[in-house]
Design a protein around this nucleic acid. Structure first.
Lengths: 101, 101
DNA sequence: TATGCAGTTATCATAGTTGATAACTTCGAG
DNA sequence: CTCGAAGTTATCAACTATGATAACTGCATA
């Protein structure tokens, strides 16, 4: 379970209002990883099984799923992962919220 | 205008049924680039203006917008571009179409 | 024609992601 | 308790996206 880890991160990231803007940019990355994990579990696959499909190692899948946030994956990597769990991807653009609400 | 270039690509890519599968994986990348260009033009910005905002060069923006398809951008790069034109991004997952329809 | 703007392409160095291996922690089954 | 499955973390090499510079095309316009 990584729920606590994610929760901890959010709490820490949001603890100071000063870092809110940074969190805004970190948030999509975490939203993505949560989705990846959810899709994989929904498909009933282990990290190792996905690694096999993509001809790589389970450690790399683990890194992709909960990267250190200092690490931004390539679009093609996300695509391949999505393919392994049976999904296509699309990037959705939504008008940005004002920085000073 | 690069419309003709994109159209040419699609025509060529789809000309042989054998490469349809490859096109499936190339398609999201091209869909993305078309969106990037559309958003930039909608914002009334030039590549150079975006480059200034992101503290980089217009040549790099050009490369991002119409990459040679052998090149897959990082998620953070797309994020930064989106930010420059006033948008947030989100990755949408949709169940994969069957390979043999 | 000539000038400037917008975008493209090529190139190289740098930074960063990914591949691969190994050791480690949890945790549940036996 | 022991064992194996699942996942994590660290490390280094290999690969590749990005930063930066420069030269180029096409186009509008004066």
């Amino acid at each position: 379970m990584n729920r606590s880890t994610l929760t901890d991160f959010k709490k820490k990231a949001l603890s100071k209002a000063a870092v809110n803007k940074e969190y805004q940019s970190l948030a999509p990355a975490y939203a993505l990883r949560k989705k990846l994990i959810a899709l994989r579990q929904k498909a009933g696959l282990t990290q190792e099984q996905i690694a096999d499909v993509l001809h790589t190692q389970k450690s790399n899948i683990s890194r992709l799923e909960n990267a250190n946030s200092v690490n931004s994956p390539k679009l093609s990597t996300i695509e391949q992962y999505a393919d392994a769990v049976g999904y296509d991807i699309e990037i959705k653009f939504t008008p940005k919220k004002a920085h000073n609400e």
